[in-house]
Computed example of a mutant assay.
Amino acid sequence: LTRVRSTLTRVRSRSCCYLKPGPHPQPAVRGVSGGGAGAGWYGGLADSAPVHLAEQFLVGVQQVSGLPWWASIAVGTLSVRTLVTLPLAAYQMVIVAKVEALQVEISELAKRLQYEVSVRAKERGWTDKQCQFQFKRNLRRIVSQLYVRDNCHPFKASLLVWVQLPLWISLSLALRNLSLDQLGSESTSELAAGGALWFPDLTAPDWTWILPVCLGLTNMLIVEVSSLHRPTGSRLQRLVLNSFRALSVLMIPIAASVPSSMALYWLTSSLVGFSHNLLLRSPVVHRLLQLQTQRSDSPYRDLLAALVNKYLK
């Protein structure tokens, strides 16, 4: 009995030691990043290789420049959009200009094709449905040949979107991971003290809503300026324009619920993108790109006049 009692006493003492309160290591969860992205597809996206490369890029910019984090985010955004998206935007303008220049030739060829199809229809007794089929099929073939001849397939004009959107998502998730790192890394602590003015903590949302509201106004300005040079007569075009307007407004509460680092990046990206759009309107840029379409010699004055006429009169 004495031996049993002593054994039970030792077991109880060890159990008490094991059950003492204190910090316990948390098990690692697969597919969950340091930012607490959660499991599932979103967690996998936040823990993907492009996002980690974006994290390394942002941290590298901050370490090399020695700037505070808010300035490093602005510098990194400016460098990426200038070195990557600006050349693609210029290339998109060249492709669009070539496609527009082909419209006159396509119209003339379509009239000639219509005549040839009508002649062939009389010879072979085609119905109206067969005539339309032959006309559309041959017109598509002719247009494709023209695109190949001038190296201006319209799909090439969409390269900007296919590059800019993944880049925007990667940098946004990278900043979220750095801001919400639960392991207390050095970058997270520096982000917490790397803000300025009314947003000193970049890991917390901007409770003043200044950054989100500025983001919404900037995006709305970009949408309205873009709509001045695009036709909005059809129902589909008005639906697309109103959808972009609604998205600009929706981004305000979204930006108010994320870390200030993300809202700052979104605002900086929109401002840089808007400045690039203005730069690409310059006649000097058009001459450098050898654009064939006719442009105004005073694009900025015309843009301001168009805005005033549309919204202030």
Rank of each mutant, 00 (worst) to 15 (best):
T2F: 07
R5K: 08
L8M: 08
V11D: 09
Y18C: 13
K20R: 10
P25K: 08
G31D: 09
G35Y: 04
A37Q: 07
A39I: 03
A39F: 08
A49H: 11
A54S: 14
Q56E: 01
F57M: 00
G60V: 02
Q63F: 01
G66P: 14
W69A: 08
W70K: 02
A71P: 03
S72Y: 14
T77Q: 08
R81L: 09
T82Q: 10
L83C: 06
A89W: 05
Q92G: 01
I95H: 04
E100W: 01
A101F: 13
Q103T: 06
Q103N: 08
L109P: 10
L113A: 01
S118V: 02
R120Q: 14
W126Q: 14
F135Y: 14
R137E: 10
N138Q: 14
Q145C: 12
Y147G: 08
D150W: 15
N151A: 10
C152Q: 02
S158E: 04
L159M: 06
V161D: 04
V161K: 03
Q164L: 11
L167R: 03
L167C: 12
W168F: 10
S170D: 06
L171Q: 09
L171H: 14
S172E: 00
S172F: 10
L173M: 11
L173D: 08
L175A: 05
L175W: 14
D181N: 15
G184C: 03
S189H: 14
L191G: 11
A192R: 15
G195H: 15
L197A: 12
L202I: 00
V213E: 01
L215Q: 07
N219F: 06
E224Y: 08
T232C: 01
T232A: 05
Q237F: 04
R238E: 00
R245M: 00
I252S: 11
A255G: 05
S257F: 12
M262R: 13
Y265F: 10
W266V: 04
L267S: 07
L267C: 07
T268W: 09
T268P: 06
S269W: 11
V272N: 12
F274T: 01
H276I: 00
N277I: 01
R281W: 06
S282N: 10
S282R: 03
V284D: 07
V284C: 10
V284F: 13
L289A: 08
R295Y: 05
L304F: 12
A305L: 02
K313M: 00
